[in-house]
Design a protein around this nucleic acid. Structure first.
Length: 578
RNA sequence: CGGCCCGUAGCUCAGCUGGCAGAGCACGUGACUCUUAAUCAUGGGGUCGAGGGUUCGAUUCCCUCCGGGCCGACCA
């Protein structure tokens, strides 16, 4: 047994496990456990005068225990919430045999175990709604102690806050931090709200490739992988835009996808290597229509979630009630810096950047410089929802030229809390223009812009067959969820945020045979490993066999192993010091 | 990639100027039939993230590494 590596509490729980088995109780039963109640439903709806919930069966995890002599309390947590249970010896054990109460309930159960209970609901003298247990079933034994979080008057004591624990072991976070489950329920609800809206309009939810031969649709560094059979590189998608537009070419009027995208870039509180984007494309619409639709989407999700459009994010109050402010990028820069860039050329823009100490690089073109000015000086100021419209052509290669303003495209981004939440265009559907824009991107790429877009010739071919005028939009679901659930970091709205792997201590251990070969009796192998001599080599590095002998005898005594101590000469022989 | 901070019992955290490793909860044993951060008594539990250095002596000081957080850079 290598129980020596387990903590005391883990060992005790494993012993309880064995004891349960000896009592004929399977700690991991296979059978379905039919419940007929949830904790929250009981708490909300139990009324003594109605005499309801008198034959309930529920299942959940033991979260706390208050063990007394012949009666005990515990708290059971199911998916809906927590409820107190009350077990009395003579109710649980009506006959002579009191084992189920005295031994199983009081001694062998632990915080963290999954338990099923049958009984009736009552109110205690203290007024707490409680399930009086007539019968209980061990449904799953927990052999690893859970962090114990106590709570009184809504204040948590010893709450688990260590981010590493919370993100790496999200299952623990979800168990002991109930509000975390709420966040993820809300995340799903946000997506459901949108899906309802889209489906009610007859738009089609689709799935498009995640493994793409050309990572198109956005300017970003992709993850690359390799397909063995085809012997070719494949990329994890950075966007699904080009595929959805192919479907509009194919004749669907509205298509959407909740897509995981992947970008091989930095990680911080707003960026995770994989993230979720809703992209939606609708034929015969333009970006003006899409702005109104975006307002409707945001308003609906907020209302469905909170019943109001005014939300709190950190120390800010944000009102998501439409209409949202609309301002062109040029006007936004004027509003925030006082500089009118509408007639400036590339050199002038550089001077403006220098004057405002906005960093820029030689390979940046006019569009990039404008983008840079906006990003540095304007973006963070738009706390209330604001549409920034009419982006430079250079950085918008998939967007239709503006119908009346030269040099800009029909594109908008929605800013909330100073961050981009949505991005949309009147989609470029002129195949010849599209091909030229792709070639411009190629030139930028040759100039050193490593995030210029790849050319997708098949996409151009699709446009050549004719795509109806279309507007498309993408919403960053993670960021929207952050705002709607008041979470400061993207890691708080991702169930399993990306983390560096834990250092799995590469445990190189010598085999049993290796120890036997140098003369160590089998019974001493485990103790030696626990003393740190996990390999024969390490053992042989010992210089004083007398010291090792002392350690071994001491270990034997301390752990009450009752083994026969080796002689000094035995130990000397293992080390080959003769 | 740079700056700052953190890593000690299952969990939350103390540990001062280098001198036997601490508390609360949890856990074990005993008492207790409506408790609720249950209570009372009592006991056990540690590779102080890893490795190296200085020192008679390192959880503490120095260096390297690993992991995490915040801020910045990059990145829509």
């Amino acid at each position: 047994m290598s129980n020596m590596n387990l903590s005391e509490q883990e060992q005790i729980r494993r012993e309880s496990l064995d004891e349960l088995r000896k009592l004929g109780i399977n700690p991991y039963p296979a059978a379905e456990y039919k419940t007929n109640a949830f904790a929250q439903d009981i708490l909300d709806n139990y009324a003594p005068e109605k005499n309801n919930f008198q034959d309930v069966c529920l299942a959940g995890r033991i979260m706390s225990r208050r063990i007394m002599g012949n009666a005990s309390f515990a708290e059971l947590m199911d998916s809906s919430g927590r409820i107190q249970i009350y077990a009395r010896r003579d109710d649980v054990c009506p006959g002579e045999d009191k084992t189920m109460y005295n031994t199983v309930f009081k001694r062998l159960l632990d915080i963290g175990d999954i338990l099923g209970v049958k009984g009736h609901v009552f109110k205690t003298q203290m007024g707490e709604t409680t399930v009086h247990v007539d019968e209980f079933t061990v449904l799953s034994k927990s052999v690893r102690p859970l962090p114990v979080v106590k709570e009184k008057d809504g204040i948590l004591y010893d709450a688990v806050t260590d981010p590493e624990m919370r993100y790496r072991q999200r299952y623990v976070d979800l168990i002991v931090n109930p509000h975390v489950r709420d966040v993820f329920r809300k995340r799903t609800q946000i997506i459901q709200s949108m899906r309802e809206l889209f489906n009610s309009r007859g738009y089609l939810e689709v799935e498009t490739p995640i493994l793409q031969p050309i990572p198109g649709g956005a300017a970003a560094r992709p993850f690359i992988t390799h397909h063995n059979t085809l012997d070719m590189p494949l990329y994890l998608r950075v966007a699904n835009e080009l595929y959805l537009k192919r479907l509009i070419v194919g004749g669907f009027e509205g298509v959407y996808e909740f897509a995981k995208d992947f970008r091989n870039e930095g990680m911080d509180r707003n960026h995770n290597p994989e993230f979720t984007v809703l992209e939606i494309y609708i034929a015969y619409k333009d970006y003006n229509w899409m702005m109104s639709f975006t307002e409707e989407i945001v308003k609906k999700t907020a209302l469905d979630l909170h019943g109001k459009t005014e939300i709190t994010y950190g120390d800010k109050v944000i009102n998501l009630n439409p209409p949202f402010k609309r301002i062109s990028m040029t006007d936004a820069i004027k509003e925030n810096t006082g500089v009118d860039i509408s007639d400036l050329d590339e050199d002038d823009l550089r001077k403006v950047c220098d004057r405002l100490s906005v960093p820029h690089a030689p390979e940046m073109g006019k569009g990039k410089l404008i983008d840079q000015l906006f990003g540095e000086k304007c973006e963070h100021n738009y706390i209330q929802p604001t549409f920034i419209i009419d982006y430079p052509t250079e950085t918008s290669p998939l967007t239709k030229m503006h119908r009346s303003k030269p040099g800009v495209t029909e594109r908008f981004e929605l800013m909330i809390n100073g961050r981009e939440i949505a991005n949309a265009y009147s989609e470029l559907n002129d195949p010849i223009d599209q091909m030229e824009r792709f070639q411009d991107q190629l030139r930028l790429s040759e100039k050193g812009d490593d995030e210029a877009m790849f050319i997708d010739l098949d996409f151009v071919r699709a446009l050549e067959y004719g795509m109806p005028p279309t507007s498309g939009m993408g919403i960053g679901i993670d960021r929207l969820t952050m705002i709607l659930t008041n979470q400061p970091s993207i890691q708080d709205v991702l169930l399993f945020p990306q983390m560096k792997p834990e250092s799995q201590k590469a445990k190189v251990e010598s085999k049993k045979e290796d120890y036997l070969e140098i003369g160590v009796p089998e019974e001493w192998i485990e103790p030696l490993k626990n003393l740190g001599f996990t390999t024969v080599t390490k053992l042989k590095e010992v210089e004083k066999h007398t010291k090792l002998h002392q350690d071994i005898c001491g270990y034997n005594k301390k752990n009450k192993l009752g083994l026969k101590n080796p002689t000094q000469n035995d130990v000397k022989a293992w080390l080959n010091l003769n």
